[in-house]
């Protein structure tokens, strides 16, 4: 049976009794979370809610100099009886952890043979947002790996380890007064979020992925509601709309935001010549 996973910034966002699990970002090793938790903070929340399921995310690449602490952190997390640890670096596959690992390389999990590689290492995967509903179902038909799929939230497009906005502002003798900015390109016309944090700079869609209608057509194990940079005021309605399949509520949510279906119903183009 499928379950929803909610990225949370505090235990205020925990909904006891809901068919819901939670993803929390690990301090120093996760990206694209509004709040990162220390190990002690994580332990407190997990102990406070023994009946809830938790995934901890360390969804970024790891520098060589960070490896020792990274490994130690994973070993400690491995003792917390988590439902899964989400990782963005292949290094995690070498530590013989007993907790299921979920591979989240952001845009690299696009085919069932790739996913089966990780399944053979007892790992699940966070599916890419860059594939269609048909592709997801074909993957499901050809793998028994645990599959996570984002169904709501801004779509991640890129991560740079550079401070791209700060660099620009510094160059022109200006100061960064907020981590969140927007960019717009003349030909494209759409607006995108560009957000700096400790690790670097992320670009995300300004429009919010909303796959409410598509969930019943998919068969993933977990559907992720990604709250990163979302207005706090809509999260409760989004959770209730998705978990309770409340059509009226999702329409209410949509009245206040701009949404997109991403690539769920259309393929990205392969050959440039075909495209042109």
């Amino acid at each position: 049976m499928s379950k929803f996973l909610l990225k949370i910034s505090s235990d205020v966002n925990i909904y006891p009794g809901y068919n819901l699990g939670y993803i929390l970002g690990m301090e120093n090793y996760a990206i694209c979370f509004d709040k990162y938790f220390s190990l002690d903070e994580l332990k407190k929340i997990i102990n406070k809610y023994p009946n809830e399921s938790f995934f901890i995310s360390l969804n970024r690449v790891i520098y060589e100099e960070e490896l020792e602490n990274y490994k130690e952190t994973l070993k400690k997390l491995d003792e917390l009886n988590l439902d899964g640890i989400i990782v963005g670096d292949l290094a995690a596959l070498t530590y013989n952890l007993k907790t299921p690992l979920i591979i989240d390389q952001l845009h690299l999990n696009n085919s069932y043979l790739s996913i089966n590689h990780y399944q053979n290492n007892n790992c699940g995967v966070f599916l890419s947002n860059d594939i269609t509903l048909d592709e997801i179902n074909e993957i499901r038909a050809n793998t028994s790996a645990i599959l996570l799929k984002q169904v709501f939230g801004h779509i991640h497009l890129s991560t740079s380890v550079r401070k791209l906005v700060t660099n620009y502002l510094t160059y022109f003798n200006k100061k960064l007064d907020n981590n969140t900015h927007f960019i717009k390109e003349n030909n494209n016309g759409d607006e995108y979020i560009i957000n700096e944090e400790y690790f670097g700079t992320h670009i995300l869609t300004s429009k919010i992925l909303d796959l409410f209608e598509e969930i019943d057509k998919m068969n993933c194990d977990y559907y992720v509601i990604d709250t990163y940079l979302l207005d706090e005021s809509i999260i409760n309605d989004v959770v209730n709309a998705y978990v309770k399949k409340d059509v009226n509520l999702i329409y209410k949510v949509r009245n206040n935001i701009s949404t997109t279906k991403g690539f769920i119903n259309k393929k990205t183009t392969y050959k440039v010549k075909n495209y042109e």
Partner: peptide, 21 residues
């Protein structure tokens, strides 16, 4: 951006960054 983990091209131009476009 971190190579392979960038799909700006997909979303701005509908050309798949990780499949040659």
């Amino acid at each position: 951006n971190i190579s392979g983990r960038c799909v700006l091209s997909n979303y701005f131009t509908n050309r798949d960054a990780n499949r040659g476009g």
